[in-house]
């Protein structure tokens, strides 16, 4: 039967989770999760047709270039890949994007940004990590700064954020720093997600589940 075939076909997709479940655990409605599934199908079949987002497919979507190396895109991919099995499954995609929803708790956005910048995952943002990220940003942009200038920027930022002066930024210091500089997590909110079904109507093929 048509209805049952459609359901079983979706169930066989690795990592597929029911929109009703995902909607109950994220800021998205069921319709929005279904719209995200249409986007997910496109992204997850752009290079390897297996309904899973591989790193190269993520890079391709972000940069229109599958081979573009970018420290921050790698970090985002790793954080989205909650099971750490090298791919972003649909449930991981929706749950992670939920953090970028305008209605997601600010606290969650601040924590995600902290984990993003804690490159070595030590529970702290250290000075060498901050410098590595500044160098990575300069590498991808046209901005050229002398090493002295870079050191000066890193020193100033670090001394502003490292309140207790122990040489590393902990989560509490990060929260305090972000509260003084809220623009730091501006990129943690994607206004499109507020109503993805209206912003991307072509992704909404049909609503299979009653809201």
């Amino acid at each position: 039967m048509g209805c049952c075939y459609s359901t079983s076909k979706r169930t066989r997709t690795p990592g597929y989770e029911e929109p009703t479940v995902l909607a109950s655990q994220t800021p998205f409605t069921v319709s929005e999760v279904e719209a995200l599934h249409e986007l997910y199908k496109k992204l997850s079949n752009s290079i390897i047709e297996d309904n899973l987002i591989h790193r190269e497919e993520f890079q391709l979507a972000l940069f229109r270039n599958r081979n573009k190396k970018n420290l921050f895109a790698d970090r985002i991919f790793d954080l989205f890949d909650l099971k750490r099995n090298g791919v972003i499954e649909f449930g991981e995609f929706v749950r992670s994007l939920g953090l970028f929803h305008p209605n997601a708790p600010l606290e969650d956005k601040i924590t995600f940004a902290f984990r993003l910048y804690d490159l070595k995952q030590t529970g702290f943002i250290e000075r060498d990590e901050l410098k590595e990220m500044v160098l990575a940003l300069l590498h991808e942009s046209d901005l050229e700064l002398s090493d002295d200038m870079i050191e000066s920027i890193v020193d100033k930022t670090f001394s502003d954020a490292d309140i207790n002066g122990d040489g590393k930024i902990d989560q509490e210091e990060w929260k305090a720093f972000v509260s003084k500089h809220p623009s730091l997590i501006r990129n943690m909110t994607l206004p499109y997600l507020k109503d993805i079904t209206l912003a991307f109507p072509s992704f909404v093929v049909r609503t299979e589940v009653e809201e």
């Binding site: 986007l39 992204l43 979507a61 972000l62 940069f63 970018n70 420290l71 921050f72 895109a73 790698d74 970090r75 985002i76 994007l97 970028f100 993003l116 910048y117 901050l130 990220m133 500044v134 990575a136 940003l137 991808e140 942009s141 901005l143 700064l145 200038m149 000066s152 920027i153 890193v154 100033k156 930022t157 670090f158 502003d160 954020a161 720093f177 500089h181 623009s183 730091l184 997590i185 501006r186 990129n187 994607l190 499109y192 993805i196 912003a199 991307f200 072509s202």
Partner: peptide, 26 residues
């Protein structure tokens, strides 16, 4: 912007790799 007044995290946050809106471009 004078380098001394730059905030390193502000610089970093401008990375294209952190701009997920690109995922939604058709």
């Amino acid at each position: 912007v004078a380098p001394a007044t730059m905030n390193a995290f502000e610089l970093i946050s401008k990375s294209q790799g952190l701009n997920l809106s690109s995922l939604f471009e058709k």
